[in-house]
Simulated scan of single mutants.
Amino acid sequence: MDEFELVLPAELSRFGRSTRATVTGPADGPVVIVLGGISASRFVCGAGGWWPGMVGDEGAVDPRRHRVLGIDFIADKCGGAAPSCEDQAAVICKVLDRSGVDQAHAVVGASYGGMVALSLGQHFPARVKRIVVISAGASAHPAATALRELQRRVVALGIAEGAAAEALSIARGMAMLSYRTSEEFERRFAGGLGGEEPLGRTEPGDYLRARGEAFQAVMSPGRFLSLSASIDRHRIDPAAITTPALLIGAESDQLVPPSQMEALAAALAGPAALRILPSLYGHDMFLKDAARMADIVRPFLEGGQ
């Protein structure tokens, strides 16, 4: 694995001095850019990789055959400004330049990473041959925007009141409810409150607390504000994207419903294939059903290879 620091251009300096990226795999392998949600990191491959099942030996993206590029998204650590997905795509192009790559074989993006992949396809079409977009539309859905604004208000209030960590944990819990499905919660947990104490602990609540605490290991309150708002800044023109695309969505996705994926597929100027799949896991299908996603993505990546 080649891990390196990329100094940001002056026009992006409000998002920090630099970011970090990794490149893993044979020097002559086809380059595949792999992007995930706002908490995803540059560590795509290996024991600490965030997308097992999709990336790895025998995965759709295989570091033994592919040259796999991962990146830490840029963000304002103070939470005062939100980068655009085009900004993220521009940084990816800088990483490609640093790695001596004129054109990547593909970009595989899920959730926020799918939004960045679409921006790469629109604004820098010469830099990638094909795009895979999982659970991302042409713009943010109004209901999802409303939920994220509530999360940002909670975090901002926590920062102002000296309770930033607890506020970030609550915001993550709210997000988890939108990532997953009520059917999954029904299978895993008992509902209801056992006593008269209004702030008593519940079984599903304990799960969300645990996820909120774990989130703090990879996300700060300011970075969360910046990247959460970046999601809601996302808007691309599908008619301007001619790059071949594979789109995958979940029937149960609350944040990016199938209707958004269908509209995107119909509006793209280039060839587009769409798969809408049943899943217990909603928006988190790309993580929880990664092996199933890989079976769909693999032949698309192998086309023309």
Rank of each mutant, 00 (worst) to 15 (best):
R172F: 00
A245S: 15
R209Y: 12
E86T: 15
G53D: 09
E86N: 08
P271S: 12
G158C: 10
L168W: 03
V55G: 08
E86M: 08
G49Y: 03
D2A: 12
Y112V: 01
A27V: 08
P9K: 05
A140M: 14
R20C: 14
R292D: 12
V101W: 06
Y112G: 04
F43I: 15
F124L: 10
V218W: 11
E149C: 10
A60C: 11
L150R: 10
E58N: 13
A263T: 09
T243I: 14
A40G: 14
R188D: 15
A175F: 02
I236V: 15
D97N: 01
F124G: 06
P52M: 04
V133G: 04
A214C: 02
H66L: 00
G121P: 03
T145R: 14
D253T: 06
G25L: 00
A266P: 08
A291S: 14
F4M: 09
D102Y: 04
F124S: 10
S178I: 00
I276H: 11
S182Y: 11
E196F: 10
L268H: 05
D237I: 03
S13L: 07
V256A: 07
F124N: 11
L199V: 12
E149A: 13
V32A: 02
G70W: 07
I296P: 03
A190Q: 15
E197N: 15
L193F: 13
P26A: 02
A164C: 05
D97G: 01
Q151R: 03
R67G: 03
A106Q: 03
V101F: 00
V256W: 00
L277H: 05
A146L: 13
H123C: 04
A250L: 08
F43Q: 10
R14A: 09
A47M: 01
G16H: 06
I236E: 02
H123T: 05
G191F: 15
G25Q: 06
F286A: 14
D289L: 08
M1N: 07
F73Q: 00
G222Y: 02
L225G: 06
A165H: 07
T19I: 09
S41E: 09
E58R: 13
F15N: 03
K129T: 08
G59L: 01
L247S: 08
L274W: 06
F215L: 01
V91E: 02
A250P: 09
G195Q: 12
R153M: 12
L199I: 09
G162T: 01
I33Q: 05
L96N: 04
L208P: 05
R153W: 04
G46S: 02
I74S: 06
A265F: 08
G270T: 10
G48Y: 00
A267R: 11
T181C: 07
R188N: 15
A143F: 11
A290F: 08
D28E: 10
Y112K: 05
E166N: 06
A160H: 07
R127V: 00
A210F: 13
S111H: 02
T24E: 09
I236A: 04
D232A: 01
A82H: 02
W50Y: 12
